[in-house]
Design a protein around this nucleic acid. Sequence first.
DNA 1: CGGCACGTTGAATGCCATCAAGTGGGGTGG
DNA 2: CCACCCCACTTGATGGCATTCAACGTGCCG
Lengths: 244, 244
Amino acid sequence: MNEQGVSAIVRKLSAFVVLTQEEQSVVDGLCRHPRLIRAGHDLVVQGQTRHSAYILQSGWVCSYKLQEDGSRQIIDFQVPGDFLGLRSVLLRTSDHSFESVTDIQVSEVQTADLIAAFECAPRLSAAIFWAVSRDEAMVVEHLVGVGRRGADSRVAHFLLELETRLALIGLSNRRCFRCPLTQYHLADALGLSAVHVNRVLRHLREAGLVTFRHGFVSIHDPIALADIAGFDATYLDQAEPLLR
Amino acid sequence: MNEQGVSAIVRKLSAFVVLTQEEQSVVDGLCRHPRLIRAGHDLVVQGQTRHSAYILQSGWVCSYKLQEDGSRQIIDFQVPGDFLGLRSVLLRTSDHSFESVTDIQVSEVQTADLIAAFECAPRLSAAIFWAVSRDEAMVVEHLVGVGRRGADSRVAHFLLELETRLALIGLSNRRCFRCPLTQYHLADALGLSAVHVNRVLRHLREAGLVTFRHGFVSIHDPIALADIAGFDATYLDQAEPLLR
DNA sequence: CGGCACGTTGAATGCCATCAAGTGGGGTGG
DNA sequence: CCACCCCACTTGATGGCATTCAACGTGCCG
């Protein structure tokens, strides 16, 4: 729960469907058994066969895929209110891993409970499908970035996307936000070396665009930053709620 | 329909769920109104607000995302039996475009019909969710390739994945297959320049691994190719059907 | 026969990885 | 309390992989 007394997931889903009090309690019912996990632990590992889905209550998680040569590609980061592993419950073996970046709090979601929730609150299922679709759109945009953008643009785009996601759940005020990621995380996510990420960050900082330091990000010039990022937030679909 | 008298989509879904005769007819019912589209046309364009989903009956399609600077990133190719735009029916605006690579035959799927099909054939819905999950896993693997693999490895991986997908619907005999893609398609998909794709293909050909030419691909040395590709087909989940 | 799309090859440039070395803060243990 | 280590970050030098520019080949089609 944050300062408004509303859980992050309710807040996020409300961006798409304005949930009734009753629907909110259904969601909260899914989050009944929170579990604490320390930073740097794997929730699900690549190749694992029967794994659950989770809702992230607090803290940050990354999903990644390891290669034989030891390098890893981070697929996405999860912030409070996001689902973990919902995409792949139907594949027999998980194709990627989840690791806690910070200490986290998660609720395990039983498939049966989820289906029951869908039945008694159909609008809720629409909201959850929207959330899943948005996550996929983010992976696609991520692919575009890694495939077609230069390093500066890639880093700028990443920070802007992050800001937008965090603003949605009340963890950013559109200027600055807390961010527990290291430059190594950025490197693994963006397909760059950590050394180069460092150089790019310095460049962006000296250009007065954005500062990424001490677990904190400040966006000094959103316009110029969005410009070099080629950032267009349409894919995050963050306009008015569709269903009221 | 192919030579076995079974549509590509039924064949593909059967890899996950062995469909009864009745379930097969439900699927065929979804494919009632086929539409022909010439090569090089857009079915859905990025930014379009209300678009349908389709099932591809024959021919090849690519989904891509355009950038301001004119470059494009191909997200994925669709081959017969694949869905188009199912992922994003819930987002208000499509975040990417679909273009026919060859002349194609598609069936438009009404959301209502799909839901009705789910209700009268629950096993079918599981199979479709599996197909969607597999598509997402492919996008993730694509991201890993673009982010973390060198050009040779990327091209090799792409060709192996393609072969596996086509074998599933009976369009490859595990050695060679027809492939209407140009080197420009590969370049846009793999985040490389067309010139470099050409060089890589020459290199792979001269090494006796694979030939990509005249709309035809021959895999001469699958073992060595999988080796430099770092190819592990687990994410395609192509083992035994799960539900019988 | 010209035009066009696709493919092919060479040379020069440049972005980013890699190697290497060093800084600084936080935690631990002597 | 200080020495030590470890991790994250920082910076410079070097080199390689892939892009870009440019030119040419080749088959197809109007």
